[in-house]
Amino acid sequence: MSNSRIISPVSVSLLCLFLLCCSASHAPRGWLPNPDEVPFRAQGGWVQITRTSGPDLGGELIAIGRDTVYLADEEFHVVSKADVISARLARYDSNAGDLGGYAFLGTVSTISNGFVLIFTAPVWIVGGLTAMGFQHNMPLITCEICDFSKLSPYARFPAGLPDGINRSQIRMSPGGI
C-alpha cells in the first residue's frame, strides 16, 4: 500500500474528529476566549444545564447563589439548584480542533519517514487523538451531582450576585470584551 493510500483514510478520520471537536462546545462560535485572553476578559464561562423540568439551558454563568444558579443568554435565567440534574462549564476555548490540525500535519509529515510511517503514523494518530481528547476536556468542568462551588470562580460575579443589581439589564456578554 502506498504512503498516500495509508495517509488518506487517516486524514478523513482526523478531519471528522476535528469537526467533532469544533462542534463539541455549546457556546456560540468564537464566544469563548482563547486561554491567552482569559486573564483580561471579564465574562463568565459558558454553562450548559440539564434540568428536571424543562429543556436544557445554556448561557454565560453569571453567579452561583445559595439555592440558585444565574445564567444569561439573550435573557437572564434563574435556575433552582434542586432543578439541576447536571451542569457542564466551558471555561475557555480549548483549541482542541487546532490540535487535531497539528496531529493531521504530523501524520502527513510521516510520509517523509518512508516505510517507517507504519510505526510513526500510528504514533501520531493514536497520540494525536489522545492529546486532542485531553486538550478538549481540559477547560471543562462537569458535575453530575453538582458541587456548585467548583463553578463559582468562573462566574461573571464569582462572589455571588451583587445586591441591588438590575437583573433585567444582564445579558450574555457579546464576547470579545
Binding site: P35, D36, V38, R91, D98, P153, P158, A159
Partner: peptide, 9 residues
C-alpha cells in the same frame, strides 16, 4: 497555542 489557565479567587 495550547495553554491551560489556572484561576485563583
Amino acid at each position: 497555542e495550547f495553554k491551560k489557565v489556572e484561576r485563583e479567587i
